[in-house]
Design a binder for these strands. Structure first.
Length: 272
DNA sequence: CACCATGTTCCTTG
DNA sequence: CCAAGGAACATGGT
């Protein structure tokens, strides 16, 4: 997409670009060239070329929410159901499809200012994690989902990281011992790195009959059952035996801040 | 029919 | 100040 110019914009769901308006996006983006793509937390950042009078180049933020998909397709291919927005380019069109409309496509970049450190960035050290956890009495799992503490960790990988670190999700965040913080730090990086590796090995193929799409799945992959499955150890595995060697535990599901948490009560201890 | 869902922000209440 | 809970966004799978 880098180097292409936005020729036309169609917003089919006005709320997708809030707090902006479709007209604002139209005015700001049409005729603009995409100079660079960045990622910050779960935001995809489109850096656009500035106009002569402008000091700062505008940035377009995309967040996929839970069901969003972003892809380029030829202009003569019909739009899929639940298409929220279309950016027509020099060649092809960028489609933002979002079944549940939790996603965003906006010029409002203020969410970036509130984000904590990137878990795979150089600033994310055990000390940085200790700072992020602070002296909070909040459950560590809930804390890990706070994007101001750590940027880009979601519900699945929060459970996975705590399982790998053998830390009970309900432990108060501020009461973890230095060794546990070090283990959690390592586990977060391991879980995310492995997920990225798995994702990057899934072949991308838009042509022909296969719909292999490099998306992440926690259940069976729709086209390749078993072969490209993510290997999640606890998430969505309530009732299954713990995958840790010689652990007799059973994976349990609990609710924290309205979200599902999965854990093994046997090997994730409640008391450091 | 009921309940659940990979996310984030904002608001109210205690 | 902190923490918890609900709402909002809205659809589809089981």
């Amino acid at each position: 997409m880098v180097g292409r110019t936005i020729r036309q914009i169609t917003i089919l769901r006005a709320k997708t670009c809030r707090p902006d308006t479709p007209a604002c996006l139209q005015k700001t983006l049409v005729g603009r060239r995409i100079e660079r793509l960045d990622r910050r937390a779960k935001y995809l950042v489109f850096n656009l070329n500035p106009r002569p009078s402008e000091t700062a180049p505008p940035r377009l933020l995309a967040h996929l929410g839970m069901t969003g998909r972003l892809f380029v397709q030829p202009t003569d291919v019909p739009l899929p159901g639940h298409t929220a927005a279309v950016l027509r380019l020099d060649r092809g069109q960028l489609v933002f499809q979002d079944t549940r409309y939790f996603g965003r496509l906006t010029l409002d970049t203020t969410p970036l200012d509130r984000l904590g450190p990137e878990p795979l960035g150089i600033h994310f050290t055990p000390a940085a994690l200790a700072t992020a956890l602070g002296s909070s009495r909040q459950a560590v799992k809930v804390r890990l989902l706070d994007q101001r503490a750590i940027a880009g960790l979601g519900n699945i990988y929060a459970s996975e990281a705590l399982f790998l670190a053998r830390i009970h999700p309900e432990r108060p965040a501020g009461q973890l011992h230095p060794k546990e913080i070090a283990a959690l730090h390592r586990s977060i990086q391991t879980v995310l790195s492995q997920a990225i590796t798995v994702g990057s090995t899934v072949p991308l193929n838009w042509s022909g009959s296969t719909k292999t799409d490099r998306l992440f799945y926690y259940g069976r992959h729709p086209d390749a059952p078993g072969s490209y499955e993510e290997r999640l150890r606890v998430y969505d595995r309530a009732g299954a035996p713990c995958s840790r060697r010689r652990c007799p535990g059973t994976i349990r599901r609990i609710l924290q801040a309205g979200r599902s948490t999965f854990l093994c009560p046997q090997c994730q201890s409640t008391w450091g």
